[in-house]
């Protein structure tokens, strides 16, 4: 099986939305292969279809035609249970709007995916604390989202995305609602994860700073892939992370 190290494969994906009588074609035939451990940025202007593609890859929405394969499994073939399992164990999601559950503390947010995964309470707690430490929020574990800044909430979201050791982290404009400095922190955090844990990271963005850390940049515009660039050399940029 030649394509086994493709953790994600997008095959001729089209996506239309019907709005009343008009059909809006948002993805116009996307073909994409992403290898295990890669850090891929999907760049494109607002409205180019990044979020729509993100939803397809993450199994949050179904293509109008074409298929998305995760580990060579066509995810449109999965039933509700298998899809939930995939979302729970295989993929970690990070959103532009953080989407931290407001009524739960930082730690509870991080442990929730582990609860769904059936991991025992104390084990989930330990792992949760470990992950909060990793993102530099160990002291804040009992804080509710409204007591945390945007950057801190996004770091909780990163920790939560890592809860079940997913193979893939999908991030949709993770720095979109953050100021430059906190945005950089998140980018560095993602890079560190990709390097140290070997997680595949797929990030939709129009933050040009993502270019420096990406192994590959996929430029999309108007629902089509414009070009794909390798940025191998630049990805080993150093410095900023070592301080903490």
């Amino acid at each position: 099986m030649k394509s086994l190290n493709n953790i994600v494969r997008v095959d001729k994906v089209l996506k239309d939305f019907t709005m009343g009588k008009t059909i809006v074609s948002v993805l116009k035939g996307i073909d994409l292969e992403i290898k295990t451990g890669e850090y891929v940025s999907i760049m494109g202007p607002s409205g180019s279809g990044k979020t729509t593609l993100f939803n397809m890859i993450g199994g949050l929405d179904k293509p109008s035609s074409g298929s998305v394969f995760i580990d060579e499994i066509d995810i449109s073939q999965l039933d509700a249970y298998e899809l939930a399992w995939l979302r729970c164990r295989k993929i970690g999601y990070i959103f532009q709007t953080f989407n931290i559950i407001q009524v739960m503390t930082a730690l509870e947010n991080v442990t929730l995916p582990m609860v769904f995964a059936g991991i025992a309470d104390d084990q989930a707690r330990d792992k949760g604390m470990e992950l909060l430490e990793l993102v530099g929020l160990k002291e804040r574990f009992q804080h509710k989202p409204f007591e945390l800044s945007g950057g801190q909430q996004q770091r909780v979201a990163v920790a939560r995305a890592l809860a079940n050791d997913p193979a893939i982290i999908l991030a949709d404009e993770p720095t979109g609602n953050l100021d430059l400095a906190t945005g950089d922190e998140i980018i560095n955090l993602l890079k560190m994860l990709s390097r140290e844990k070997g997680v595949t990271i797929i990030s939709a963005t129009h933050d040009l700073k993502m270019l420096n850390v990406s192994d590959r940049v996929i430029w999309i515009s108007d629902g089509k892939i414009e070009k794909i660039e390798h940025r191998d050399e630049l990805s080993i940029s150093l410095g900023q992370i070592g301080e903490k």
Binding site: K2, E72, Q77, Y81, A84, W85, F116, G118
Partner: peptide, 20 residues
């Protein structure tokens, strides 16, 4: 492209849960 005989072969038989 080679086809898997069982497309879900490498999905473990585990399920998500939420205890009462």
């Amino acid at each position: 492209m080679q086809k898997n005989t069982n497309p879900k072969a490498n999905l473990p038989q585990q399920q998500v849960a939420l205890p009462y």
